[in-house]
Structure formats: structure tokens, C-alpha cells
Design a protein around this nucleic acid. Structure first.
Length: 876
RNA sequence: GGGCGAAUAGCUCAGCCGGCUAGAGCACUCGGCUUACAUCCGAGAGGUCACAGGUUCGAAUCCUGUUUCGCCCACCA
């Protein structure tokens, strides 16, 4: 075998391995997988995930990296378990976002979309998609995502367009789609309707303007502010669309308001006076101007009181002919002009600062205008009811738990969904002569089944629907997840997935959302270039128990760990060089193995159990952390160090056995780690494979190798684990003394270890050689006598007492102080245990085992204290 | 305005059903190039678990309230 470099270099291997996997067809579900009982896999046993389709315009950001890493871990795990596993990839046409991108591109060429005309423009968008639409899928490959690319879909491809038409038709025929004049969120820049979810509000420091309306004197017919109501509004320009003023029916202050003839200033139009419960007497002056065409509440009031709906805005946010004399002005210009004019007319009272929520377009951040227009809607109540029921009966589970309430709360208060958009790029509404297109989400909500072929009854649909797990960020719980559940139930009669895993949002270290425009984004591809995809994945996942606050240093964890793994394997390969595996099953010989080998196998099996337990409950971070500590803290720090002399020593039975165990442990580690770190584990596993004598039953890729599932424990050995604790105490004690005493590295050292019980004695006998090696001792005596010529320093743990004897002089005062500190510590601890045990209530109420445990601790600590005191006497 | 979440070492976080002297990684201090790895090895220092009450033999963990931060939702003009 070629020598491995001393450092892990991900660049060399990543693209080569991905190509190997993809061209080998390993990402495709097994067509003929057969479970142990010989029955063909049933639909229920397939494992399916559909990717949250990134926008075609997108470039991979950290949110994607986390999201897809989590999916890939689950997918690779299930695939290794032997389940027919399918991860469906694809991209979203992202209506407004994509249209904006292409418009911007045209702008640079000095063109507008209107210049091209609709047909030509759409051609341009497709052209753009062909050229740039593969960026994100290429980037997902760099991450290692094991999607079945042969099944890649696009929300505007032919099949999905058909699904969209079918879904629309079905809803239409059921009477769940209607068209109506409605007040909707309108983006004057994008010139389209937006759903409520697309128009998020931001708290804004605004102003509340107070000014007088006019009253007509019945005698003179003159208009004046005498006795007229003062009103307050944040958007004075909408007064041009006023139809009435309203007060609360119970508001005593305005009993006679109806008797007045109220007129609108500037336009001098008569207004109605109405009374409505909506009006809050506490807010402003208690009098509200009513503008049915430009405010959602006023719209409702307008319906209740049959008011005129006066639309005063053009689609691009300018005042139209109804708003004379302000016609042609932009809405914000008009606001200023109107305030000026009101001031000039002596009607303006004051302006006060006012914090309020202002909706903005989620794409271009323009202030959204409530706007009256004809739109298409889906009646959501009937769909939501089914989705609530499916959730209540446990058909869909959301993890973490707390999101369940958020989900149900939203569905219970659902409002109809405005699905038409006045843009060009999107699915046309299949209604003759309608120029609108459908909301992007109208195609994405069908994603879990449309990607599998619906409305055709395909094999894929039968085999892989419903899917298994959906992994997503919380931001699109309503946009997407809830709607998919509704669509799945409506069109397929079944929930689209069984589990929803919601992970944290990736933020910059500052706590802000990462975004390119804020300049605080860390590019995952850059990180992959620097430390490798595996390091990125491991770091992200280990941090991702909740929201992730990222900075570049955080990828060190993964980087260092992959390098450690690389070197552990490198060491193994150097020492396995004349080894032929294949026929070896440690399970057969387990009882005959050396204690060290039994110990590592026992720990390995425990780790495998823990990893699977955590994977099952979607605790991917905990699973990764557990593996990390096993590999680094046990396998590298102890096992490899312990078996070094054996492996590098002369050939013997023990050496052969150790090589076999090392081979097994490394193989299992690589398998366990593969879902998190697919590249490095594959690379190392392929090398490991070269040592196996019989490779016929080894799959071509680690991706397809069997997952270390522990059905029944084969390697459990509590005794060797206990002995190992004694070893750790002994070695740790000597190291501590060495460091405390600041001994020079070459210092010759003899140690004496005394034991407290038979088990400890046996453990010491078993590991005597190892202790000597790890603690770098010249000699080691068990329960030996102290030489009169040497000075001694001691350390006592629960089961062993460790002394080192040093020829020559040691600093007695320093050692005295050290012992005093230790004695004090133990006394304090002993005190707390005694207090606990002396409390009669503790004995009465605490569980039996706990009391026994505490009593054990008491004896242990007492013995320890005795030794420390005896030793202290020597230094007095 | 309503709902949710967070508050633990200098930093980022783990601590499930209440009970091992509250842990890890980074940073820090001391000592080491020990024939896999200095992206490393060994040792160490560092915490009144936000605050105030309560339940309990026992609370970082459960309950109540307070403070600070974050997120989501909402039509108060």
C-alpha cells in the first residue's frame, strides 16, 4: 500500500470519491433489496426523504449546508441498514426571486422585461436556468449529499406542471378555489400580490399624524374645522380613498357625530359617519378614517356598512385619477405633499412618533401596500381540518416537540390562501385569458408526491410514498410543511411524511441571520476548500442541537478530528501490513482475548448502541459527540497507546490477535462515522479493505456496507471495564505526580502502587506492564516496601494508592502543602456524604441503590483520607 | 398585544425521567517533537448553574414570579 500522508488532505479525495459513488449508482435505492425473512421489501420499509428544494437562483449557504448534512446523515444511515433508500433532489423555480434575477440581468443590458414581451422574457428565464440553475446542485455534491440525481426534479418541469394543473382542477371542482375582489398585500415594485407569509412585518419607527376633517355649516354651506373630528393616521395619503369616518358605538364623546355633515379636506368630498365595534376609543382620538380599498380592517368595515371602495393607487404605487390633485405622485411623495397642504389649510394638528409593524416584501423589502384587486384564493379551512386531525392522531410527528403547538395554532387560525401572482415566471393559472401565475408554493406543496410521478400512478409513487422524514428549518413551517401535509391528505389521502425534523437557524456569531447583504455570511464552499466537507459537516452537526451561531474558528473541531481519525488509521495500516483478515470473527473468541482487547470491543459496542439510540430520536448532535469521544478519548488516547508495544514488537499470538481486533474496531468506527463524514471514512475503508483476505462479501463502497447494528450484545465485558478504571487511576496518579512535582522529562522514576481490594490487585497484575509503559516508569512494585534512601510522594484514588520514590531530595514543604490541599478536599466531600447519610429522611425516601452507593463512597473516601494523612505524617 | 425559546467556565455549548465532587470543545497556564498525529501528547487553573421565592430527604433540572436577550404570530388606524 502506498504510504498515507501524515496530514489528512481532503482535496485529493473528495471529488474522486463523489464521482465513484455517483457513477457507481450507489445513490439509487436498491431495486431488489431483500430483508432477512426473504419477503420482498414492502412499501413501508422503504426510507424516503425529499429535499427541501433550494431556489434555482440560490447559492449554497450555511443553512443549506446544515439542512442537507442532516438529511444526508439520516439517508446514509438508513441506506447502510439495508433499507431501500431514496433521497429525491430538485430545485424550486422560485417565481419572484428568479424573475428578479433575470430582470436585473436585463437591466444591465439596458433592457426591461416589458421590452421583450412575456414570451421572450420567459425564454430568457429558461435560458438563465439552463446556464446557472446547476450551481446549487453542484454545490450539494461538494457537500457529499447522496441524492439520487437520476430522479432530480424542477418545480416547472413537465411532470410537475401537470401535477399543478391537476391539483388546481381538483380543488376547483370541489369548490375550494374562488376568485374575488379582496384586499391583499401588494408589492408596488414587483407589482404582484403577496401572501401574508411573503409580507413579513418589521417594527418600524413611524409617525402618527393628527389632523382635522371638515364640517359643513348647514346654514352657510361653508366647510370648516369648527366642531369637526380630529383623526389620527399613519398613512395620510390614503385619505384620498376615504369613504367614511367611524367611531365606537359606545363612545360617548361623539354622540352627535352623525348629525354633522363630514367632509374630506383637500378633496372636499362628503363622507359617511358610521359606528363600528372595531374602533378602539382608546387609540388616537377614537375617530377612524375608513379607507376600504387600502386597509384590511377598513375593507371589512366597508363590507359591513356598504361603503364605496375607492382605489386611489396605480399598480406601481402612484396616486391615480381618483386622487386628484395628487395624481401621478408616488405614495410617499403624496404623503408629504398632503401634510404640507393640510398645514397650509390650518387643519394639521400634530405628529407624534409611533412604533408600528409595517409589512415588507420578502424579496425586495419594499413597503407592501394593502391593495384591492381581483385574486384567486384557496379555501383553507377544509384542508386544515384534515391536517389537524392527521396530526392529532399521530400520523405526523414534529421534532422537537415544542413546534407541534406552533403548527396546530397556525392551522386553527388559518386564512384563505391567495394563490395568484401578477408576474410572468411561474405556472399559468389554467383558466382562459387569465394572465396571472400561481404562487410558487402552489407547486412546492405537492413536492413529496409530484416528484414521485403524481398524478400518474407510478411505481415510485407506490414504493416511496408516503416519505419518511422531512428535515427543514423553522422558517418554512407554514409556507411549506403545513401546506404539504394538507396537500398530501387532499390529493393522496395520506400524510406526505411521518416525521418532521426541525433544526436550528444558522446565524452569524453576532446573532444576526447570516446573509450576503449583511456581509456576515460564511461561504460553506470556502470552508470545504479549507478544511474539507467532512470537517464542515461534523462541526455543523455537533453545534446544531439548537440555533447555530457560527464563526470560522468553529470548524476547527471537525478539522482536527478528521486529521486525528486519519492518523489513527494511518498508524493501524502501518502495523497491519502483514495481516490477512477475512476469516476472523472476534465474537467467536471474545472470552479468550486479552483484557485490553476485550475492553475496547466492549466500549465499541456500547458506543454503537448509543449512536443508534440517538439517531433514532433525531439527536444527531449527541450521536456525533459520542462517537467523537470514543474515537479520540478511548480508541486513540488509550487503546492505540496500550497496544503499541505489542504491535511493534516481535510476532506472537497476542500480536496477531491484537491486529485482528484493531482491524475490527477500525472497520466499525469507519462504518459508524460514515453518515457524518462520508469522504474520509470511505477513503480509509477502501484502504482497510486491502488487508482483508477474502473480500468477496465486501460491498464496493462503505456507503453500502452493513451498519453496526447491535441486536444482542456480543462483546460485553464489565470486568475488563472495571479493571480499566484501575489502570486509568494508576496511570493518571503517576502522571499527576510527575506534573505536580515538575519533574524533568528524563527523570528516572520508580513507583509503588498499593491496592485496596482484591479486584484492584487483579487489575494491577493484569495491566502492570501497560501501566509501566504509559506512565513511563523504570520500575513498578505492587504493594512494595519503601526504600529508606528515597523520598516519597503519594497520590490516592478510590481503589489504588500510588507512590513514587525519588532518589535524592524533594521539596518537603511543597509536598506538605500539596497533601494539605488534598486532605482538605476529601474532608469536605466526606462531610457532604456524612450529612446526607445522617439525614433519616434520606434513608427513608431515597432509593435503596442510592443509599448503598453513598455508603460505598463513604468507605472509599475514608480509606483515601487515611492514606493521605499517613503520608502527610511522613513529611511532618 | 399574544405565543415560544434561551440564560451553566473568558467564548460556544452538553447536562434525558430531580440523586455519580456540574461536563466538553476553543481560549488560558505549566511540562513535553514519547518511532500515527505539534491539526499532537500529559497535567492544571477557571462556575454562588440570570435573580427571588416555593415543592422535596435532595433542585442546574420541577412550579411561581422578576429581569435580560432572541424568534414567531397579530388588523389597533
Amino acid at each position: 500500500m502506498a504510504e498515507l500522508s501524515t496530514r489528512y488532505n481532503p482535496k485529493e479525495i473528495e471529488s474522486r470519491l463523489y464521482e465513484f459513488w455517483e457513477s457507481g449508482g450507489f445513490f439509487k435505492p436498491k431495486p431488489d433489496a431483500v430483508p432477512p425473512d426473504g419477503v420482498r421489501w414492502e412499501r413501508a420499509s422503504a426510507y424516503t426523504v425529499v429535499i427541501p428544494p433550494p431556489n434555482v437562483t440560490g447559492i449554497l449557504h450555511m443553512g443549506h449546508a446544515l439542512n442537507n448534512t442532516l438529511q444526508d446523515i439520516l439517508v446514509r444511515w438508513h441506506r447502510m441498514k439495508g433499507e431501500p433508500t431514496l433521497w429525491v433532489p430538485g430545485t424550486d423555480h422560485a417565481g419572484i426571486a428568479t424573475q428578479n434575477v433575470v430582470e436585473k440581468k436585463l437591466e444591465k443590458e439596458g433592457k426591461k422585461r416589458q421590452d421583450l414581451g412575456r414570451e421572450k422574457f420567459i425564454e430568457e428565464v429558461w435560458k438563465w436556468k439552463e446556464e446557472h440553475g446547476t450551481t446549487i446542485t453542484k454545490q450539494l455534491r461538494r457537500l457529499g449529499a447522496s441524492c439520487d440525481w437520476s430522479r432530480e426534479r424542477f418545480t416547472m418541469d413537465e411532470g410537475l406542471s401537470k401535477a399543478v394543473r391537476e391539483a388546481f382542477t381538483q380543488l376547483y371542482e370541489k369548490g375550494l378555489i374562488y376568485q374575488g375582489n379582496y384586499i391583499i398585500n401588494w408589492c408596488p415594485r414587483c407589482q404582484t400580490a403577496l401572501s401574508d407569509e411573503e409580507a413579513p412585518s418589521t417594527e418600524t419607527e413611524g409617525k402618527l399624524y393628527y389632523y382635522y376633517y371638515l364640517v359643513k355649516d348647514p346654514k352657510t354651506g361653508k366647510l370648516s374645522r369648527e366642531g369637526a373630528p380630529l383623526i389620527a393616521t399613519t398613512r395620510p395619503e390614503t385619505m384620498l380613498g376615504d369613504s367614511a369616518v367611524a367611531v365606537n358605538p359606545k363612545d360617548g364623546r361623539y354622540k352627535n357625530l352623525e348629525k354633522l355633515e363630514i367632509y374630506l379636506p383637500l378633496q372636499n368630498r362628503p363622507l359617511k359617519v358610521i359606528r363600528d365595534d372595531f374602533v378602539d376609543p382608546e387609540f388616537g382620538t377614537g375617530v377612524v378614517k375608513v379607507t376600504p380599498a387600502h386597509d384590511p380592517n377598513d375593507f371589512e368595515m366597508g363590507i359591513r356598512h356598504q361603503l364605496e371602495q375607492r382605489n386611489i393607487l396605480t399598480p406601481d404605487g402612484r396616486i391615480n385619477e381618483k386622487g386628484k390633485p395628487y395624481e401621478g405622485l408616488d405614495r410617499f411623495e403624496a404623503r408629504m405633499k398632503i401634510i404640507e397642504d393640510l398645514k397650509a389649510a390650518g387643519l394639521f394638528e400634530k405628529e407624534v412618533p409611533h412604533r408600528h409593524a409595517v409589512p415588507h416584501c420578502y424579496r425586495c423589502h419594499t413597503v407592501v401596500e394593502p391593495y384591492l384587486s381581483k385574486q384567486w384564493f384557496v379555501k383553507m379551512k377544509p384542508l386544515a381540518e384534515k391536517a389537524l386531525k392527521a396530526h392529532a392522531t399521530g400520523k405526523v410527528k414534529i421534532t422537537p416537540e415544542r413546534w407541534n403547538k406552533v403548527y396546530t395554532n397556525w392551522l386553527e387560525n388559518i386564512r384563505d390562501w391567495c394563490i395568484s401572482r401578477q408576474i410572468w415566471w411561474g405556472h399559468p393559472i389554467p383558466v382562459k385569458g387569465d394572465p396571472d401565475v400561481l404562487d410558487t408554493w402552489f407547486s412546492s406543496w405537492l413536492w413529496p408526491f409530484s416528484t414521485l410521478g403524481w398524478p400518474e400512478e407510478t411505481e415510485d409513487l407506490k414504493r416511496f410514498y408516503p416519505t419518511s422524514d422531512l428535515v427543514t428549518a423553522p422558517e418554512i413551517l407554514f409556507f411549506w410543511v403545513a401546506r404539504m401535509i394538507m396537500a398530501g391528505l387532499e390529493f393522496m389521502g395520506e400524510v406526505p411524511f411521518k416525521n418532521v425534523l426541525i433544526h436550528g437557524t444558522v446565524r452569524a456569531q453576532s446573532g444576526l441571520k447570516m446573509s450576503k447583504s449583511l456581509g456576515n455570511a460564511i461561504d460553506p464552499i470556502e470552508v470545504i476548500d479549507e478544511v474539507g466537507a467532512d470537517a464542515l459537516r461534523l462541526s455543523l452537526v455537533m453545534l446544531a442541537a439548537q440555533d447555530v451561531y457560527l464563526s470560522k474558528e468553529k470548524f476547527e473541531v471537525g478539522k482536527n478530528f478528521t486529521n486525528k481519525l486519519w492518523n489513527a488509521a494511518r498508524f493501524s495500516f502501518l502495523n497491519l501490513k502483514d495481516f490477512k483478515a477475512g476469516e476472523f470473527d472476534p465474537g467467536l473468541d471474545f472470552k479468550k482475548l486479552t483484557p485490553v482487547n476485550r475492553w475496547i470491543l466492549s466500549r465499541l459496542e456500547e458506543t454503537a448502541l448509543e449512536v443508534e439510540f440517538n439517531l433514532k430520536r433525531f439527536a444527531l448532535a449527541q450521536a456525533a459527540t459520542g462517537l467523537y469521544h470514543f474515537v479520540w478519548g478511548k480508541f486513540c488516547d488509550w487503546y492505540i497507546e496500550l497496544v503499541k508495544p505489542t504491535l511493534t514488537g516481535p510476532d506472537c499470538r497476542e500480536k496477531e490477535e491484537t491486529e485482528k481486533v484493531l482491524f475490527t474496531v477500525l472497520d466499525q468506527i469507519l462504518r459508524l462515522l460514515h453518515p457524518w463524514a462520508p469522504f474520509i471514512t470511505e477513503e480509509l475503508w477502501q484502504k482497510l479493505k486491502e488487508f482483508a483476505k477474502d473480500k468477496s462479501d465486501w460491498p464496493p463502497s462503505l456507503m453500502l456496507a452493513a451498519w453496526p447494528h447491535v441486536e444482542k450484545r456480543r462483546f460485553e465485558d464489565k470486568a475488563s471495564e472495571e479493571s480499566f478504571k484501575v489502570l486509568e487511576q494508576a496511570v493518571g496518579g503517576i502522571r499527576e505526580l510527575r506534573a505536580d512535582l515538575n519533574l524533568p522529562p528524563g527523570q528516572a522514576l520508580s513507583a509503588v502502587i498499593r491496592y485496596r481490594n482484591k479486584a484492584a490487585h487483579e487489575a494491577l497484575l493484569v495491566f502492570q506492564k501497560e501501566i509501566q509503559k504509559l506512565a513511563r516508569l523504570d520500575s513498578l512494585e505492587l504493594k512494595g516496601e519503601f526504600k529508606r534512601t528515597a523520598a516519597y510522594v503519594g497520590h490516592a484514588a478510590s481503589e489504588v494508592e500510588v507512590f513514587i520514590q525519588i532518589e535524592g531530595v524533594i521539596d518537603r514543604e511543597k509536598e506538605k502543602a500539596r497533601l494539605e490541599k488534598k486532605i482538605e478536599e476529601v474532608e469536605r466531600y466526606l462531610d457532604s456524604i456524612r450529612k446526607k447519610l445522617e439525614n433519616p429522611n434520606f434513608r427513608r425516601n431515597a432509593p435503596e441503590e442510592l443509599v448503598v452507593e453513598e455508603e460505598g463512597k463513604l468507605l472509599e473516601q475514608e480509606a483515601l483520607l487515611k492514606t493521605l494523612r499517613e503520608h502527610y505524617e511522613l513529611f511532618k
